[in-house]
Write a protein that binds this DNA or RNA. Structure first.
Lengths: 214, 214, 214, 214
DNA sequence: TATGAATGAGGTTTCATTCAT
DNA sequence: CATGAATGAAACCTCATTCAT
């Protein structure tokens, strides 16, 4: 009755419904894949009826797309500051720790679904491209921040020209994706694995990397 | 007329049927996932009718298991020798080339399907463990081969103790998965990215790699 | 402020809402049938939301009943005077023109829906009977008017006894339904066809109509 | 086991399944309309499972189309010979009797459905046009047969030029459709109504039809 | 061995209806 | 009065599987 107390109740209620459905969907998609996750299971997990889903999303594919957008946004606004907050030489360790301990479970498996759906659902191409483009831009931003935060000549820039920079960005993104995927698959990753992978990628790309000091 | 000859022919015919069904299944699983791939689509792609499938496999899950075995075996007998045949420093390039150009699309993602099926299909546990073990063993084999093929002191062993070895194995597997995932997402990976990632992982794990002063 | 004026406005507003919903329903029922017409489509076509429907009608079947009443009333107050306003021999042409050019598409087919709903909705029986009775009464009224408007002996009454009258009424209704059905099926009916059919029915029922051997 | 006894069993079995499903569909469509008839009700009435339907028809709309074709074919091969077998002046009575007593129940209501589906299913246009074209051709054939069977000058041809013939054909088809529709709606038609309608249409189209002998 | 008609559980989606606002 | 989020029954359709041939 109190209008103050009830203000925006309708909108808030629906927003919460959407949020809970998205969370449930993330878990079901991760557990059973896109085709294997049923809308009944998603809505039951979220505590709603079947119809609530169709009040908030047009189709199952629409849900996957919205989920992808939400997860990507969260990745950029949560993971990025967390990683950049640490200063070298702890940044690599901090990034590894975040990826392994705090990154939402199952997040990467949704990407697997998108990759699979692409050939048979050409209309998803645009969304997928946007996601990967954003991911690469995000990684590039991390690298730029790393450059900037390095004091002067103490640490050489990890890359010099555009080609190098592109290879580095792709490699770093592949490393992050691979680590999260392995983790989500149930492998008990030790911190050493993540650090080694990230450090290796970020190492100066001298041609003799992999060789000895010689 | 000759029963010997005819029996041979029969066996050959059936073998070809199985092979074609497995090939078609690999493509459909990669494209749509396990739950999303239909037996009709698989048999149609192979040029058979529904019944041919059930003459050769008990269930859809059974098909996935056989396919996993076949792919793992092929990976070990075809890809591995090709990679090992090259000597350093070309081996890394060769491995990168294989991953990006020749590895069947979505092949490693079959692991994702198996991992997903495990909770609801406890009877698959044994097979999944066998595959996981083989995967790790395969990576270990690559590393060992790298050790062995290196002439003496020219190239130091990439790992020294068990802990190190485990971290290295996990990192390498993560790198491979990440690269394949990015590729399947449509990112145009240059060879530099893959080489950098793999070289970085395989680099000697000096504590100061990528970092320390000097 | 004036409650009298406001009450009037309210009533008018609601009346308009009902009218627009009924018009939209007529079009949707004609296009898709009762079962195939959705309340969402009806309200959207009328420019309202779902809730407006349930503020004005109890159920979907209730809407159909009200619509039937309205259409029947309109048919009697609009079409009938128009047809009767013309004098013979133009009356037949006028009736044909109305049927082919002005009768709302699918209007009479609402009868089909009502007949279909009867077995599964016994409570509708009374309304259906009322509509059927009115339909026959309407046709009878047309015939009576035809009798009356004929000047004296110029035109013999089209029917003489009750049996004849019943046959004539049924034939006329069949002719009207047949013409509307053909029209709705997309046949490009010329005015000649309708006139011939109606004139034939209304012709004196001499036993030798149709050409006995004289 | 006896190959003679079992010959063509597969094909025969499926043909019977299709036939029974089509019969059941005709009854359900007539009773509840296209949208109101459920596939479950159709298959249950035919004595099959839900899936049997999809082994024989692609979609529900596909079933409606096939049913229309079958009914039209049956109309041409059954009704036409029966009507033409009688000689004048009994032909009109025979036609009326057939329409009221032997024509399959509900047959015409399927046409109502087709008329309704046309606006929203443009792909049905071709089929509907084919059906109406065939119907008109059939009616024309009846009229031609009537001409031919009339002995010489005894009975003037019911139509003379093309325009007249077209109007006559349309009127006759409308009469038949109207009669069947009324019958299927539950009206207890007496033979007089049908005969009057048909005779009236077939009467010579002198301009003074409907007038008196002056 | 291979075929494909038939089964029926279960999936996605629609939609009449309710109810808090 | 009107809105529209939520409900849940029931619809259409898919598909893994069985079985007679």
């Amino acid at each position: 009755m109190n209008p103050e107390r009830r203000r925006q109740t309708r909108a808030q209620t629906q927003a919460e419904t959407r949020t809970r459905l998205l969370e449930a969907a993330a878990e079901e998609f991760a557990a059973h894949g896109f085709a294997g996750a049923s809308i009944d299971a998603i809505t039951a997990r979220a505590g709603y009826s079947r119809g609530a889903f169709y009040s908030n999303f047009a189709t199952k594919a629409d849900l996957l797309l919205e989920l992808s957008e939400v997860q990507m946004a969260r990745f950029s606004t949560t993971a990025l500051p967390a990683i950049l907050a640490a200063t070298e030489p702890d940044r690599t360790a901090e990034a590894a720790r975040y990826l392994l301990r705090e990154a939402p479970a199952g997040e990467l498996l949704v990407l697997v679904e998108l990759a699979r759906l692409r050939p048979s659902h050409p209309e998803l191409g645009g969304v997928i491209d946007r996601l990967t483009t954003r991911s690469l831009a995000f990684v590039d931003e991390v690298l730029t921040a790393a450059d900037t935060s390095s004091t002067a000549a103490e640490q050489p820039a990890p890359s010099v020209d555009a080609t190098e920079r592109r290879a580095l960005t792709q490699a770093l993104l592949a490393a992050v994706l691979g680590l999260l995927l392995l983790r989500d698959l149930g492998v008990d990753l030790g911190p050493d694995a993540a650090q080694r992978l990230l450090r290796g990628v970020l190492a100066p790309s001298n041609d003799d990397v992999g060789g000895g000091p010689r």
